[in-house]
Design a protein around this nucleic acid. Structure first.
Length: 260
DNA sequence: ATGGTTGGCATCCAA
């Protein structure tokens, strides 16, 4: 049996990015693709188009903003949406499921907007809530993948100008602290296990002219695994091709493979 | 120092 292939992509509208997503799926044949920023309520998600090409979907969306989904070759088990906590704000940022004994947890971490804003405080609270979510549901010995748009560049190598952005949204010590606490589960950054150094990015801001060509990017889309699963990780790669296509997302795909 | 882009929905907000 071949490796399990698990990918992530912030689509920035699943409807606009449908051709890019379907192309990428056909080319790469992942077992699961985690999508973020689908930006549509469930009734408007292009379920039929995915099914036409043999892909199952598990979706958790809302009108216009946020939204996450899992796309898979085979049906997923035990699909869960949200934190399952009625006290915590529910804005469609988390969906999880099981495949081949692996728990796949897909998140769209809040952006944070501006340091000191209510949205930034919400980002920090959200990350704390997520740490508890992991502890409530899983043990360190379980095979668990946490992936998605993490919206944090955790080290100086993960953003094109660390000095410029240190202390700003996405590269702030308070974010590093919350992420470190989550990773103490422990979880392993599968990309960093296999690749060191700067210039490996997954997001290039639309606002910056020719950002991709100049590689003015951020590595904010991550694939983490628990220790026993990380030991089975044979590859983790960023695919820049989709960022070069017509009408791209501002993010691109990351894909990891795990041996049986 | 500023502005540069995109998507969704409504003519502005979030990213």
């Amino acid at each position: 049996m071949r490796d399990v292939r698990i990918a992530t992509f912030n689509a920035n509208s699943v409807r606009v990015r449908l051709p890019i997503i379907l192309d990428w799926l056909a080319e790469n044949e992942p077992d699961v693709l985690a999508l973020q920023e689908t930006k549509c309520e469930d009734s408007k998600f292009p379920v039929a188009e995915f099914e036409e090409w043999g892909w199952h979907t598990a979706i958790h969306g809302q009108k216009a903003r946020q939204g996450v989904a899992l796309v898979s070759r085979r049906p997923l088990g035990n699909v869960r949406i949200g934190f399952g906590d009625p006290l915590f704000p529910e804005d469609c940022r988390i969906i999880s499921a099981e495949l081949d004994g692996i728990a796949v947890v897909n998140t769209y971490v809040p952006n944070g907007t501006a340091v000191g804003s209510d949205r930034f405080e919400y980002k920090l609270r959200w990350l704390e809530r997520f740490r508890h979510y992991l502890g409530e549901r899983y043990r360190p010995t379980d095979p668990v993948v946490w992936l998605g748009d993490i919206n944090i560049a955790p080290t100086p190598d993960d953003v094109y100008d660390s000095r410029k952005f240190l202390g700003g949204v996405g590269h702030h010590p308070d974010e590093f602290k919350r992420l470190s606490a989550i990773l103490q589960f422990p979880l392993i950054d599968t990309f960093r296990t296999l690749h060191s150094g700067a210039s490996h990015y997954t997001f290039w801001d639309f606002v910056i002219p020719r950002a991709l060509e100049r590689n003015l990017g951020w590595r904010i889309d991550h694939i983490y695994a628990t220790v026993p699963l990380a030991a089975r990780c044979t590859s983790c790669e960023i695919d820049r091709e989709p960022r070069m296509m017509e009408r791209p997302s501002d993010h691109t795909f990351v894909v990891a493979e795990f041996g049986k």
